[in-house]
Design a protein around this nucleic acid. Structure first.
Lengths: 272, 272
DNA sequence: CCCAATTTGTTCGTATGTATA
DNA sequence: TTATACATACGAACAAATTGG
């Protein structure tokens, strides 16, 4: 049931004080100002992942812009998967619980005969085993990646990912314990979907993009054991920093991939 | 000087028979049909890279759609960097001669202290030396990647890329000699800009996206020598297939990266 | 099953601003 | 200055999906 306005105030159906008429500079287009206002609203947490925003006509009225201008701003946010529109229902803060979003950040797949078929092929889900879940203090590298202070409390999680029944990837995940307050091993391992979906549901944190740096390395003793490899074998090492609203780093992850039978796949495009 | 219509035919300023009123199915939105019509027009080569399209109002009239609908279609193509709009001038087939496009497909940069600064940092241009330029017959792998027949003539080009005066990447590039008819070593090595710009200018081929598969490997003897490494050192091997209009593969490239001092960097996003 | 209200999706058109030649 | 072309902003009308009665 959608909350309806009381009869004595028929024109203020959903009070959203954050959405006040814009007082923009004039040089930047109105629809950009609207977009920034919406982003600020989302960054504030006033509407969490999965929640519905007021209707387009309502927001347009609150911001004192035309419906077309509002739609243009929302269009861009929908394109960036920050918002999701559903015809007949409304506009929602995007929930990244889709297959598409799993594979947005999981790029390992079997080496294939046809080099181009990853563009069309159905992909396999990795099976995840949690090898370790510890609370620790941030190292220099971790602190720099997460932009926190040296020694701040962090969760360090070690996962083994298998494809076709064989271990292929080792993930070392590092999270600020201050940001992910209340996270437990039980909750982490028993999550219903991906970790990024868990971040959204339990902590209201949306991962919007990530930076990755890949390099070849010789397998360390520890990782080699977890992946069933000999120490020193060439492996692919991927360092990822995941970013949320306002470019805030929220996760630092080092993935080590056994690329003897698998590849790390990405699709580049001239977009963006 | 823009060609103007003769006085006896004032309403047909630029004859473009490819742009006829649409006879779409009805279930797919009009602006998508317009987009496909424009893509087909570009795929046909009727307008080459850098050329101006008829004005928006003209195209809208030819296709019998409103200017707003046409703009929506063009918006998407501009987003995908297929077209470029310049206010006051016109709409042009995108020319990928920008820095941005170089780095769209060149992802190697020095390992940095601050893990996040590749998002803001200025990047260094690689210095390219052509090690070899040969005409050969397509191997099984090359033929599969380029979707041509085994043994068809191909150009095989070997490049060494240096950053900070030291060789870091080896590129083995394979092109169909039938598609890149008339390509010469001289023209290839003396190109004014990137190879993808050369493909556009000399052959009218726009690379719109690419698929890459990365893996760790032990450096081969040949590549190790070119990069100044010891044989067997772990290196990053990136297999790229570059695609043009209609998903046509036009280039197959194997890059080998010395990742001792450098990383292969990419930015993922929830977009697309 | 149908109807009505709500919400987004598509298409059209107009007016005005800004950059270019 | 003028004409052309794209950029922005507004709004109307109708279609399609959803929900609840």
């Amino acid at each position: 049931m959608k909350p309806t306005a009381p009869s004595f105030a028929p024109f203020v159906p959903v009070p959203v004080p954050e959405l006040a008429p814009l007082s923009g500079s004039g040089t930047v287009p109105l629809y950009r100002q609207v977009k920034r206002a919406l982003l600020k609203l989302l960054e504030s947490g006033r509407f969490g992942p999965g929640e519905a925003l007021p209707s387009e006509s309502e927001i347009a009225q609150l911001l004192q812009v035309s419906i077309g201008t509002l739609r243009r701003a929302v269009d861009e946010l929908v394109h960036e998967h920050v918002l999701i529109r559903r015809q007949g229902k409304g506009t929602f803060v995007a929930l990244h619980n889709d297959d598409r979003f799993l594979f947005q950040f999981f790029h390992v797949e079997p080496r294939s005969a046809d080099a181009l078929d990853s563009l069309t092929q159905e992909r396999e889900y990795p099976v995840v085993d949690c090898v370790a879940f510890d609370k620790a203090r941030a190292t220099e590298t971790q602190a720099a990646a997460l932009r926190i202070r040296l020694g701040e409390p962090v969760f360090c999680i070690s996962n083994r990912l298998s494809l076709g029944g064989r271990p292929v990837v080792h993930d070392a995940i590092c999270l600020s314990a201050l940001v992910f307050k209340g996270l437990t091993e039980k909750r982490f391992t028993e999550r219903p979907s991906t970790v990024y979906n868990l971040y959204q549901l339990d902590h209201g944190i949306s991962v919007l993009r990530a930076q990755e740096r890949a390099r070849a390395a010789a397998a360390s003793r520890d990782v080699a054991r977890i992946l069933g490899l000999s120490t020193g074998v060439p492996v692919l090492e991927v360092h990822r920093i995941a970013l949320s609203f306002g470019e805030k780093p929220v996760e630092y992850r080092v993935s080590t991939v056994n690329t003897q039978q698998h590849d790390y796949v990405s699709v580049l495009s001239t977009q963006r």
